[in-house]
Write a protein that binds this DNA or RNA. Structure first.
Length: 414
RNA sequence: GCUAGGGUAGGGUAGCGGCUAUCCUAAAGGACUGUGGAUCCUUUGACCCGGGUUCGAUUCCCGGCCCUGGCCCCA
């Protein structure tokens, strides 16, 4: 017997119906927000992926030589591919671009809760707009997807990196990237290690800085205006975003949280992460603004903002909240036969199928009892019984499998 | 890469140094030769792999593989 490869999943029909429902809600929500779908190949050149993440990424992805000796890989993320797509057709694409995609991604990592080697990830991005309205649109899609999926226990923690960057500059902090990394880990590491890390980055007055991060809200952040240009830009941006979120009616799902920085180097302004309200689980997903990334892939300067949401954690969250759809397939019609009535079975099936119904019939030469048993098993809503006796009078029986009620109708009425 | 726990029919489980390896469920069929969900019966189907200890290992020991968590990392 062969087994699945580690960290991969099979989706059997019952699971597939539930997943399709979830994906449908996600697609519809994105499209109602004016996003259009794109797809790119599952394989890309290793150089493209390494462009953003460096050569060391090789250890964490599926990378191999193809028969032509080219180093290629299964895509571990979407950003390089979509940046390439934009750079390739820079001139003809009208800005802003509002794109979404639900590609499969592969990462060669140790699987654990909420993390597999093969997974789907919704990517939602807006390219070409610097406006905080674009940031808001991206946040809004994320929030509406969560709500439309029936989720309630979540909160968007929103920040702007430039605020912290400006603040750290005021305190003459030497290594700002490293400081970002440490502050990002604040909740995960012991207090001592955290303080130690801050000191190493040259942050002596960490009490003051942490106090600011903890106490500032969207209501009082304006008090910090006038300190330096970076902070002013961040403040204006955050106030705009929260105002727009208010206009859109999703403000209640958001909170200003200046401690959110995200470890990644390429985010430039707004960043966000989504947590359950009590922050018990790990981050559900996150994203932000990355204005310089497309350019680094050889395109023109293209401001961008977006997020990536993996299906694995989403499924865990939905199951935890009890809103994962029922895993059950069903069928509109099962046509049962008694005796030599094949010609009627086929023609009835064709008529119903042309009308758009899902229809199936016996392929096992079963007796009526077992045909009904099978119809029950596949959750057929209705069974049409084509019997020799009735067909002589031009009649068939329709049985409602839920009520058990059965009526005799004219065969031509189908 | 590091670390904890675990691997018995398709799914869920019991068990023991030696019995025909337990039960539930599932699937196929029958009881019911023209009516599903109930009941009963039949059939199908498992001790992860390799080595060691032993008269004998599914059980004990070692190694590997795999699974479930945690760490590193997290695009």
């Amino acid at each position: 017997m062969f087994q699945r490869l580690r960290g991969t999943r099979d989706f059997y029909p019952e699971e597939m119906t539930a997943r399709n429902k979830v994906f449908k809600i996600i697609r519809e929500t994105a499209e109602r927000h004016g996003f259009v779908e794109v797809v790119s190949p599952a394989i890309e050149s290793f150089d493209l992926i390494a462009k953003k993440s460096g050569e060391d990424i090789k250890e964490e992805i599926y990378a191999f030589k193809d028969k032509g000796g080219r180093m290629i890989c299964l895509i571990p993320e979407f950003t390089p591919s979509v940046s390439r797509m934009i750079a390739n057709r820079q001139k003809e694409l009208g800005k802003p671009l509002k794109w979404y995609s639900i590609p499969r991604h592969w990462r060669y990592e140790r699987p654990q809760s909420g993390r597999l080697r093969e997974f789907y990830q919704l990517n939602v991005d807006i390219f070409g707009s610097e406006s905080p309205k674009a940031d808001t649109e991206v946040l809004s899609v994320g929030i509406c997807i969560m709500l439309n999926l029936g989720l309630k226990d979540f909160l968007f923690h929103i920040s702007n990196r430039k605020f912290l960057q400006g603040l750290l500059q005021e305190y003459n902090v030497s290594n700002i990237q490293e400081a970002f990394r440490i502050i990002d880990k604040r909740d995960k590491i012991p207090e001592e290690e955290f303080v130690d890390g801050l000191l190493k980055c040259g942050i002596k007055d960490y009490d003051e800085i942490l106090d600011i991060l903890d106490s500032v809200t969207i209501e009082n952040i304006g008090d910090f205006r006038g300190r330096n240009e970076l902070m002013d830009k961040a403040i204006d941006n955050l106030i705009d975003i929260f105002r727009y979120l208010e206009y859109y009616g999703v403000r209640e799902h958001c909170v200003l949280d200046l401690s959110i920085v995200r470890g990644l180097a390429y985010y430039t302004d707004m960043v966000f992460e989504v947590y359950d309200k009590k922050k018990e689980m790990r981050s559900l997903f996150g994203g932000g603004r990355y204005d310089d990334l497309v350019e680094s892939f050889g395109g023109e300067h293209t401001p961008a903002v977006g997020f990536g949401m993996g299906d694995v954690v989403l499924e865990l969250m939905m199951k935890k909240e009890g809103v994962w759809p029922e895993e059950k397939t069903d069928m509109d019609y099962y046509i049962a036969n008694i005796g030599d009535v094949d010609r009627y079975v086929f023609s009835i099936a064709k008529k119903l199928r042309n009308k758009g119904y899902r229809v199936t019939f016996d392929l096992m030469e079963r007796n009526l009892s077992n045909q009904l048993k099978y119809a029950d098993k596949i959750n057929a809503k209705k069974v049409i019984i084509v019997g020799e006796k009735e067909i002589k009078e031009g009649k068939i029986l329709i049985r409602d499998m839920e009520t058990g009620k059965q009526e005799k109708i004219d065969v031509n009425k189908i």
